[in-house]
Design a protein around this nucleic acid. Sequence first.
DNA 1: TTCATTTATTGAACTTGTTCAATGTTTTTA
DNA 2: TAAAAACATTGAACAAGTTCAATAAATGAA
Lengths: 193, 193
Amino acid sequence: MTELLKQNINKHIALSQKEIEEFCNLFQQKVIKKKSFLLREGDVCKFEGFVTKGTFRVYHIDKNGAEQILYFAIENWWITDIDSFTNEKPSQLFIEALEDSEVLLISKKDKEFAYANLSKIEKLFRVMTQKTHVALQRRMIDNLSKTADQRYLDFIEKYPELQQRLSNLQIAAYLGISHEFLSKIRNKITNKR
Amino acid sequence: MTELLKQNINKHIALSQKEIEEFCNLFQQKVIKKKSFLLREGDVCKFEGFVTKGTFRVYHIDKNGAEQILYFAIENWWITDIDSFTNEKPSQLFIEALEDSEVLLISKKDKEFAYANLSKIEKLFRVMTQKTHVALQRRMIDNLSKTADQRYLDFIEKYPELQQRLSNLQIAAYLGISHEFLSKIRNKITNKR
DNA sequence: TTCATTTATTGAACTTGTTCAATGTTTTTA
DNA sequence: TAAAAACATTGAACAAGTTCAATAAATGAA
């Protein structure tokens, strides 16, 4: 059940068989139905999660009611509201399953236990946070410099498996454009070929 | 000389007097003139820096020659290209002093030494990276949802000390708009009051 | 299978932001 | 301190993206 998780951790740092076993035992599986929420705005995020099946989106709703998608997560991706989780404060985000999904969750207490007792875990999360941060910096620069057309092309090239599984409504909310405009972009691209 | 650095570290985590002393001794001061570069695109970033005087900008130049500013750093801020530094690969960023400035630099070797020998340092950087990441997530959401007017107002409210020290050209590159348009926004705001 | 709901497409009018060029203002430097 | 360079403002024409409304297509639930 935690096979995928173990592989994922191994990609980031080297752990002994024993350490990885002990760490993975701290996770609990949760099955979650399409359109239900792992986290809602106002809740304190009590978990850090690793997706083993399905698709999630992590998003914000602004004061005009528009949704901005911070990121998607499918198998092999981690999900949490890092701000709410680490500082134990109410979240500004929603985490919703877009299909019937499964996640492995670790609680704050168990994660702290791991930081305190498993020597490499601090490093694991430092490394993972750094990688996530680098990816977000890249996305920030792209959003500042590229047109919506180019961002869409980049998206489908970078995440072909996501494009398959997501509606254009979701992709538009990630790119920061209206779904009507995305539709026009798609039309333009198709006719160009 | 490392007084400000010590205070800064103390804000993130608790260290013993001895640990903080030993860690801070790994830094070397560098004086850097206005308009000179701490890092250029193509270089491997060999340092992580803490600003003790002056102003820096960390930016990218896209293929059309336009500059996107990832962030500014004044006294008490950290600067590096985290991707280039950790993975020892050529940077895509420039780090430039906008005034005569001073930084404390730690090399990769010394930072690894600290990770290996000073027990809390791994945690320090995990915590700092998390905080930086949360701030960038916030900025990402704002860029996806807010108009340039609102982003400018947010910027001067959030960073009044930066607004004082930066030209509008720099602020526009940070907001992701042309400086002409920023000028029009400023005009509109002034006339509204 | 059918009906309801959600998603996608298209067009027209509109808003936001860009580009270019001209002009004025401030800051630097010799 | 004068000249050069960098920065800021403004207007006009344009491009990118939004909004609203209508319609079509796909999906899901009974």
